[in-house]
Write a protein that binds this DNA or RNA. Structure first.
Length: 467
RNA sequence: GGGACCGUAGGGUAGCUUGGUCGAUCCUUUGGGCUUUGGGAGCCUGAGACUCCGGUUCAAAUCCGGGCGGACCCA
């Protein structure tokens, strides 16, 4: 995969994930195969989230006055908001924004809902589309103007400590979620100048795409009381006094799917982790004139056998040569191909091909078949996970030389360095190196000096080329 | 925000410099038929395009201007 950008673009359309030819920049269609990958990914996400939050659905439009209330927040988004200005032929009295994110849609309602400490914590989330008028190059799933799959969770708490704990909880959920998908990540505390507009601090998950650029795949923000003060979200505590709530929010987007596709894929196409693959097993019947019915009957029988254990199975009975089917399903990334022909029936066996290694395995058509197949699927999950993490580790380098950093980044690495943590210093580093600081990766206990050679270094920070 | 580039069937392209021979090339895709099926088959026969608007001209895929869309570099 020497040109990742091209690979990603081509595969998205070839495999029917998205169609970017919709005539509006940055907006594309989720095609059926992609939509299913998205569906299974969201199923997993909801399983995790539903234990922590309740799902809701807020309106798409936000009144201009609400959006404008929080100054810091507005500043961060003002250049990328889409506006609805007309109803039919009539100009609207008040312009309505297509949500770029939903703080300003949700928090005025939180102010109504939250009366007492008994109402806290309040933890809601929604999975919706959001709109941002991106001026940079858009690309499907990675930089879009309509984020079709924007998961945002918004919580309100009685104390600062509780909010801080909530941030940790969301981070745990994200870790588990990404682990489930075999997506490796780096966690950073975003630098002051790059945190979410209006947040006290932002914790971010980045993953390293095959071309070495990092992709932000998740964020958790501690909002402190900034929004609570703006939207007047107060509660009555046990003593009968009014206090502002402490808030957090956490977001994920389509980019998770982009990472899923990009990180596991190879020259032959997608390699989907079984948990999210639309089909986990594809049965390919090898048909001749003789014995056709028997082969098809056996395929049906196997399909039922697998489905009884909740596996997703299909039989590719298209009237084309088997070779073409093998290529097709490798491109689509189906974890296991199972081929069955008259010869197999006679010998009471079958051949499966696993997508991760393309290894062919002979299996007996006996009582162990189902378990053997499940073992392979589980092994595949683990191998894809390990493989992706190993790739990430290979691209993680440390440097204490400002001049060396650009070279390392150009070679596709993310670079760790000692940093004092000062904003001015950080921005200077970004200017010299000409790449972005992802943020603080770790705190430093031992004595060290900042890479700029002056102050004491308190942190290990990361710098990289970003999407 | 600044710069330079691109737009021909569903996808990829030839043609554009020097306007006419374009009733537009080739590959892929695709409908129908025959034949075949253990790793992308073959043959026959159909289908499918000059981004849009305006201008120059006897004549525009080709030249000019603008819109829309795409891709890129710099800040």
């Amino acid at each position: 995969m020497e040109n990742f950008s091209e690979w990603f673009h081509d595969i998205s359309e070839e495999v029917n994930i998205t169609d970017a030819r919709y005539p509006i920049k940055g907006m594309s269609i989720w095609m059926p195969y992609g939509f299913q990958i998205r569906k299974y990914t969201l199923e997993i996400l909801r399983e995790f989230l539903d234990e922590e939050c309740e799902e809701t659905l807020f309106p798409l439009l936000i009144p201009e006055a609400e959006l404008a209330k929080e100054g810091l927040h507005v500043k961060g988004f003002e250049d990328e908001v889409y506006w609805v200005t007309k109803g039919g032929q009539k100009d609207l009295n008040e312009c309505l924004a297509l949500r770029p994110t939903s703080e300003t849609a949700m928090y005025p309602m939180y102010a109504l809902w939250i009366r007492s400490h008994i109402d806290l914590p309040m933890k809601y989330y929604q999975i919706v589309n959001t709109f941002r008028y991106e001026t940079k190059h858009t690309r499907p799933l990675i930089r879009v103007r309509e984020i079709t799959t924007f998961k945002e969770a918004h919580t309100a708490h009685a104390t600062k400590e509780e909010a801080a704990e909530q941030v940790e909880t969301f981070m745990e959920i994200y870790k588990n979620f990404f682990d489930c998908l075999g997506i490796p990540f780096l966690i950073c505390k975003r630098p002051e100048w790059d945190k979410f507009p209006g947040a006290d601090y932002t914790m971010a998950f980045d993953t390293i795409m095959p071309d070495g650029k990092t992709l932000q795949i998740g964020t958790v923000h501690n909002l402190g009381t900034t929004f609570a003060k703006t939207f007047d979200i107060q509660f009555e505590n046990k003593e009968g006094e009014h206090e502002y709530v402490y808030q957090t929010c956490a977001g994920l987007s389509d980019r998770v799917i982009a990472a899923l596709i990009g990180l596991h894929g190879d020259e032959k196409g997608l390699r989907l982790p079984p948990v999210v693959s639309p089909k986990q097993i594809t049965i390919i019947p090898i048909l001749f004139k003789e014995g056709k019915e028997e082969v098809i009957a056996k395929c049906d029988e196997l399909k039922k056998l697998f489905e009884a254990r909740d596996l997703r199975v299909n039989i590719d009975d298209r009237d084309i040569r088997p070779g073409k089917k093998f290529y097709d399903w490798e491109l689509k990334g189906t974890p296991i191909k199972l081929e069955l022909g008259p010869r197999d029936l006679k010998n009471n066996k079958t051949i499966i091909t696993r997508r991760d290694t393309l290894e062919k395995i002979d299996l007996e058509l006996d009582d162990n078949l189902l378990n053997n197949v499940i073992d392979v699927l589980e092994d595949m999950d683990e191998k894809l996970y390990n493989n992706a993490w190993n790739n990430q580790e290979d691209k993680f380098k440390f440097s204490d030389d400002l001049e060396e950093i650009p070279k390392l980044i150009e070679e596709g690495n993310v670079v760790a360095f000692n940093w004092c943590g000062d904003t001015e210093c950080g921005q200077e580093i970004e200017e010299i190196v000409d790449y972005d600081i992802l943020g603080i990766y770790e705190e430093l206990d031992e004595d060290a000096t900042c890479i700029t050679g002056e102050e004491r270094a308190n942190y290990i920070a990361l710098i990289a080329k970003t999407y």
